[in-house]
Structure formats: C-alpha cells, structure tokens
Amino acid sequence: MSVDIDITGLPPERIQFSPSPLAELGAMLHALAEPAHHPGLHGWVTATASCLKPDLADRLTEADFLWSSTRSDLLLPAVPRATLAEELDDLDRMDDETFTSAAFEITCTGDYERGRPSPLVDARERAQVRELSAARGPRQAEFTDRMLTDPASLRAWLRRLFEDCEQAFFADNWQRVRVQLAADARQKADLLRRKGLADALAAVSPAVSLSGDRSRIVVDKLVHGRTTAYGKGVTFLPTAFGWPHLFAVHRSGWQPVIQYPVPGPDLPQHTAPQLVQQRLEALAHPVRMRLCRHLARGPHTTGELATSYGLTPPEVSRHIAVLKKAGLLTTRRRGRYVLHQLDLTVAARLGSDFLEAVLI
C-alpha cells in the first residue's frame, strides 16, 4: 500500500523543500493532544501543557479533531511562508466552501481521495457531517454546528486560537527549531540539484522513493492513494516535532504536500511500513519464531540450528533467508563457518513483548 504522486512532466524546480510555521504548529498541537504518539517529547508536552491557561486549553480541546487522530490539510500549506501570520492570511483568503470541506475531510467524510461536495452547499453532505460529528462527542458536534451556520465567525475564532498558541508557546519553540528545519530543507534541495530526485527522496525517509519508471513519488503508507502534481508541484515540509509521523496530502484538487520528520541524535531511524509488515510476516511462522529464540542468545551456524531443531540444513537455510531479508539477523563469517544472530536492536523496535518472548 502506498500514496502515489504522479510527477510525469513535472520540472524539478516545482519540487520545493521548505519549513512551515503553521505545519510545525500543527505538529506541536498533535503532540499535545496525543502524547503517547511522541514519547520522546514527554518532557516538552508535560511542561507546555502545565503552562497553558485554562481558557486556551479548553479551546484547544474544542478543535483538536483537526490535529489529534491525524492532521487536517489546512495545517499543511503547499506554499510555506516565513511567518505564521502570513500563512494564516493565506487561510483567510480560502473560500468558505473549500475551508469547511477541508476541516471535515478526515473525521466526517468517507472519501478523502476523490473529495466531496462542501457541506455548506450540499444538504446530504451536511447531514452526514453532522451525524459523524455527533458520534465523536458533543464538543465536535458543537464545533460542526458553528462551522456550518456561521463559518466566518468560526474561522475568526480558529485564527485567534492559533495566534494565542503562538504567544503562549509556539513563538519560542519556533525560534528554537526554525534554523534546523531551514538547514535540512537546504540540504535536501541541494541533493535534488546535485544528485537528482531519487537521492533527495531517500534522504527524506526510507518510506519515500521514486518509482522505477521515475514517473511517481511513492510514499509507503498503510493506505492507498493517488494524486498528481502536474501543474501544481510538490512541497516537502520538514518537522522537528512530528516524529514518527509522515504525512502526505493527496486530496483531489490540492497540491501534494509531504511533511517528514527531521532526524535527530535521540530519534531512531524511521522504518517503512512495508518493512515492518515484512518482519511481522517473517515472524508469523512458528519455526522462525523458535529459531529467533535460539538466535537471540548468541550466534549459531545453520548446521547447529538444524541439529537443535531436527530440521535439514536446507530447511533452516530457507528460514534464515527469510529472516535476513526482513533485516532481523546479523551474519558474520568465522573461518569456514557462517554465524547468524538475531539483531536485538531491531527486535526491540518491534516491541517489548516480542523481545521478552525470545529472551525468556
């Protein structure tokens, strides 16, 4: 599964790497709303949340469906600006129908990729949005009613909310990370210019690549999606607060945007969902699970494993090949012997339950 962005005929200069204040604010708001997604930000989340004034904290809860479970496309601008105020001005210039559709695109509509008519003008869509909002609780239902009955007032309220966030915590944090994000964007743009798009995408994330025919940017995600960048371009937004999330805007009619986490010394390397699936499938076989238990304790040859488990060496070799392809084993040669061992660092990233199971 993947999100595919068709770039056929797209000139390289239409591929942009740039930090966005609004996108970084969205990443911070998501971390505050879903701290369990971001264990590395636990200290920041605790300190920031404890300093929020009660009124601001309540207002953030009212609108958190825009950034909690996922991120509204409103918060991932295709044309980044230097300041949050400039990006909020761009949102103000968006017409009410487009703005309202985007606000409800994730939580209250069932067809993100093709888009839906605006609930401001389509009665059926309006009824569905209200029904799905009610299912998500009274706060979102009230927010939805305000958006549908008086969008101008609600949009002004939302802008004030973002401006209050800037004063309360965003401005200081943006000042701290914007240089890092700008440097990362320059580095990716330089890679694009010197080595080409494939190298630039590889530097963005292992989950982002160029298709074999070089006609598509492929984002490895647990969803299917297709869009085109022709005539619009593609924007890449680095984020310091977004790890481990990789967002790809592929809504019909919108310019594709990819927000990617900037690697840091305390952050593990991002693992593509396809590789995670491959590892889980490799471990689903009971024989390979038993082999992993043996290999977790030390290096062993194929012959030793065959003797221990009553298997033939070719059988063991086939299982070892699957585990190696999934990146779960390390291999080294000692004289004429080849020794295999479970990579405990990789195993730990799959989860503590698995690690305990093979080490028990």
Results as ranks from 00 to 15, higher is better:
residue 191 L to S: 08
residue 202 A to I: 05
residue 188 K to T: 10
residue 201 L to T: 13
residue 163 E to M: 07
residue 176 R to F: 07
residue 179 V to T: 08
residue 181 L to W: 01
residue 141 A to T: 13
residue 180 Q to D: 10
residue 190 D to C: 02
residue 162 F to P: 02
residue 189 A to C: 10
residue 194 R to I: 09
residue 153 S to E: 14
residue 188 K to P: 09
residue 162 F to A: 06
residue 150 D to F: 06
residue 161 L to D: 01
residue 155 R to L: 02
residue 191 L to N: 06
residue 156 A to S: 09
residue 136 R to G: 08
residue 151 P to N: 12
residue 145 D to I: 10
residue 153 S to Y: 07
residue 170 F to Q: 00
residue 173 N to I: 00
residue 179 V to S: 05
residue 140 Q to K: 12
residue 157 W to I: 00
residue 187 Q to T: 15
residue 190 D to N: 11
residue 149 T to S: 14
residue 145 D to H: 15
residue 178 R to T: 11
residue 171 A to E: 03
residue 191 L to Q: 12
residue 183 A to G: 02
residue 177 V to N: 03
residue 202 A to D: 13
residue 186 R to T: 06
residue 196 G to F: 07
residue 200 A to H: 14
residue 193 R to H: 14
residue 147 M to C: 15
residue 133 S to Q: 02
residue 193 R to S: 09
residue 133 S to Y: 02
residue 202 A to T: 14
residue 136 R to N: 11
residue 185 A to R: 06
residue 169 F to A: 00
residue 189 A to Q: 15
residue 143 F to E: 04
residue 162 F to C: 09
residue 150 D to P: 12
residue 166 E to Y: 01
residue 190 D to S: 09
residue 148 L to G: 07
residue 136 R to D: 12
residue 204 V to M: 11
residue 188 K to E: 06
residue 132 L to W: 10
residue 139 R to Y: 04
residue 180 Q to S: 10
residue 154 L to K: 14
residue 184 D to S: 04
residue 145 D to K: 11
residue 194 R to M: 07
residue 191 L to P: 15
residue 157 W to P: 03
residue 205 S to M: 04
residue 187 Q to S: 13
residue 167 Q to M: 00
residue 168 A to I: 01
residue 165 C to A: 00
residue 195 K to F: 11
residue 157 W to Q: 03
residue 143 F to W: 13
residue 159 R to V: 05
residue 165 C to W: 03
residue 180 Q to L: 10
residue 164 D to S: 06
residue 136 R to Y: 08
residue 191 L to G: 07
residue 188 K to L: 15
residue 171 A to L: 00
residue 205 S to Y: 08
residue 187 Q to D: 14
residue 164 D to K: 00
residue 206 P to C: 05
residue 201 L to R: 10
residue 164 D to Q: 03
residue 155 R to I: 02
residue 143 F to Q: 08
residue 173 N to K: 00
residue 171 A to D: 04
residue 140 Q to T: 13
residue 155 R to A: 02
residue 145 D to W: 08
residue 189 A to K: 13
residue 146 R to A: 11
residue 195 K to E: 14
residue 166 E to V: 03
residue 156 A to K: 06
residue 183 A to H: 10
residue 154 L to I: 07
residue 205 S to P: 15
residue 146 R to K: 09
residue 168 A to D: 05
residue 148 L to Q: 10
residue 181 L to Y: 00
residue 161 L to V: 05
residue 203 A to Y: 10
residue 133 S to M: 01
residue 162 F to D: 00
residue 139 R to E: 06
residue 170 F to H: 01
residue 155 R to Q: 05
residue 149 T to H: 13
residue 151 P to S: 08
residue 190 D to A: 05
residue 198 A to P: 05
residue 168 A to L: 01
residue 182 A to D: 11
residue 181 L to C: 00
